[in-house]
Computed example of a mutant assay.
Amino acid sequence: MNYQEMTDDDIDLAVSEIVFGKTLGRRTNYTFDKAGFVFTGSGHSFTPLDNENVVFTPKIKPTSSWADAGPIIQENRISLFASDDEGKWMAQFINYKTVHMDKNPLRAAMIVFLMMKGGE
């Protein structure tokens, strides 16, 4: 998968799925309210646009929140380094093979996290 082409929202959603261990395919954890319905028991919530389309939003925003990303970075031993390459940051897993560079250090770290988990 080409993580560089993913939006921050796509990365947040993918990370949220991994962290909370749920998939979008689960249809048993819905609760309904007047505004539509909310997906509970996982890392996602959604409100339907119409009868056929649903917009999913992640429970956490690790590409923009240090509070959300910090525990993931620490628990997965992802390192961040400042780079001289156009103000980019390098995120790296301890195996030295899983590396990504981005101007947003959190995005770089979450892409490395997805790369690490992609083989599972």
Rank of each mutant, 00 (worst) to 15 (best):
residue 20 F to V: 02
residue 18 I to M: 03
residue 42 S to A: 08
residue 65 S to P: 04
residue 31 T to W: 07
residue 44 H to M: 13
residue 76 N to V: 09
residue 73 I to E: 00
residue 17 E to Y: 07
residue 25 G to N: 11
residue 26 R to I: 03
residue 65 S to M: 02
residue 59 K to M: 00
residue 88 K to C: 11
residue 14 A to G: 04
residue 43 G to D: 07
residue 66 W to A: 10
residue 72 I to A: 13
residue 34 K to P: 10
residue 42 S to D: 06
residue 51 N to H: 08
residue 30 Y to A: 05
residue 51 N to K: 11
residue 58 P to C: 07
residue 54 V to Q: 02
residue 67 A to Q: 10
residue 64 S to T: 01
residue 48 P to I: 03
residue 43 G to A: 11
residue 12 D to Y: 07
residue 38 V to N: 06
residue 81 F to V: 15
residue 42 S to M: 00
residue 9 D to C: 08
residue 87 G to W: 12
residue 48 P to H: 07
residue 47 T to M: 15
residue 9 D to K: 05
residue 10 D to S: 14
residue 59 K to D: 08
residue 40 T to E: 15
residue 73 I to P: 00
residue 49 L to W: 12
residue 67 A to P: 02
residue 28 T to C: 09
residue 82 A to T: 06
residue 24 L to A: 10
residue 44 H to L: 15
residue 17 E to S: 12
residue 24 L to Y: 11
residue 90 M to D: 01
residue 52 E to L: 13
residue 47 T to E: 15
residue 57 T to G: 10
residue 37 F to G: 04
residue 46 F to H: 07
residue 4 Q to N: 15
residue 43 G to S: 08
residue 58 P to G: 13
residue 68 D to Y: 11
residue 69 A to D: 10
residue 12 D to E: 10
residue 8 D to A: 12
residue 89 W to N: 00
residue 71 P to M: 08
residue 66 W to F: 12
residue 64 S to D: 00
residue 24 L to T: 12
residue 34 K to Y: 08
residue 38 V to W: 05
residue 63 T to C: 15
residue 72 I to V: 09
residue 23 T to F: 05
residue 21 G to F: 06
residue 56 F to G: 08
residue 25 G to H: 06
residue 69 A to T: 05
residue 85 D to Q: 14
residue 23 T to K: 10
residue 33 D to V: 14
residue 82 A to G: 06
residue 83 S to Y: 11
residue 43 G to V: 00
residue 58 P to F: 01
residue 17 E to N: 14
residue 74 Q to P: 03
residue 90 M to S: 02
residue 43 G to R: 01
residue 7 T to K: 04
residue 73 I to V: 06
residue 77 R to A: 13
residue 13 L to Q: 01
residue 85 D to T: 12
residue 56 F to T: 11
residue 34 K to H: 14
residue 24 L to M: 13
residue 70 G to N: 15
residue 87 G to M: 03
residue 61 K to G: 02
residue 21 G to Y: 08
residue 74 Q to Y: 11
residue 37 F to C: 01
residue 48 P to W: 05
residue 91 A to S: 03
